[in-house]
Simulated assay, not measured.
Amino acid sequence: MSYATFTPIEVTKAHVLGCAYSQWYPKLKAHAVKSIILKPLPQEFLDYLASDSIKLENEAHGVENNSDNEYSDWEDDLDGEDDGETAPTVTIDQLQALHDQIKAGIDKLGGAVTPKLNWSAPKDARWIMAGNTTRCTSPNDVYLLLNASDHVVDDLDYPFSSVEEAGKSSQGVEDGTDKVEYELVLRKWMDINPALEFRVFVKDNRVLGISQRDLNHYVFLEALQDELKQVIEDFIYSQVVGQLGQSQYIVDVYVSRPSNKVYVVDVNPFSRKCDSLLYTWNELLVGVAPELRLITETNVGRFAQKEYSESQVPLDVVDAAGNSEAMVELAREWAKLQAK
């Protein structure tokens, strides 16, 4: 019986830091969606994002209050009960400057943005937004979406969890020299076709493979497979390789049809922490012939699990998210169950 050899991947802190949005965006700006990067971020804002509670204050006349917000602390409405703990709250006193910057950024980018931190976008928290989207039209949308995301928490708590240098893993920030300067990225909202997003694996400045990102079967892609592979490879070799200061990374791209214009969506460290999608990491590392892999009728069953299902919530919560009365009622029922 033969076994696949586990091939280690050397990932350094420099690799991780070099894939932060503010590091790659200026180099590939001509091929990326227009973005605004806000940094440094107030510690109070980072503490809020890392907290378990979701408590926001309504925006009114450029300031915020807590009178009618449908997402304010539910326990305030539960028969006046108070457990003595106060949920972190985005307040005007602490975050006025950042709040104004976010609001101005949204206006400058056309009235709608999708946010992210240095590395991760809060796609896993789309369930909390009306319409199941990452589209934000106000600062409160940005706060809510980021606070509900496990991906964002991972950015904050374990920025170097993929690092492996000289055979030793680094599970977090170990000393002052590794302190991360966190950034809030506002990207102009772009309503894209998820079927045309692809993940490109690059090592030693060579494309190892390309994978469809959205794990659903799109019949029309099969006829375009060879054309899309050529377009993506040409773009990576002509516009990306040699621009990022490192030779291994993972690039997420979007191909706009019918023009075949390629946009860079994100750049990720080349590590097992990043989903290899339709490849196995062993295939990528041993050097199979590079190809564009798609979900087809023959393999669709292998990828039937709903995306980000581990971060999602019951349908009742999703249905109640756009209705403040339903949300309060849901919280009351949950409190009763907890009491029992």
Rank of each mutant, 00 (worst) to 15 (best):
N193F: 07
P194F: 13
I250W: 07
Y48L: 11
S51V: 07
V163T: 12
V153H: 12
V253F: 02
N193A: 05
I92V: 03
A321L: 06
L117G: 01
D178A: 06
Q225K: 15
W119H: 13
V267T: 14
Q243W: 10
K27L: 14
N205S: 14
L224M: 13
S53I: 01
D275N: 14
G242E: 15
Q101C: 02
D150M: 02
S2W: 11
E233N: 05
V300S: 05
S211D: 00
S311K: 06
G105C: 08
N205M: 04
N132H: 11
K55A: 11
L186C: 09
S259R: 05
G322Y: 09
P159V: 09
T12H: 08
L38R: 04
E44W: 01
F220G: 04
N58K: 14
D175F: 06
V288C: 11
W119D: 05
I36E: 15
V313T: 09
D52A: 06
Y218Q: 06
N66Q: 13
Q312H: 15
N268W: 09
W74V: 11
A326M: 12
Y263C: 05
H217L: 14
D155F: 04
Y158H: 13
S67P: 00
W74F: 09
L117I: 07
D76Q: 02
F235E: 04
G209A: 02
F6I: 10
T91M: 01
D234P: 00
F160V: 03
N193V: 01
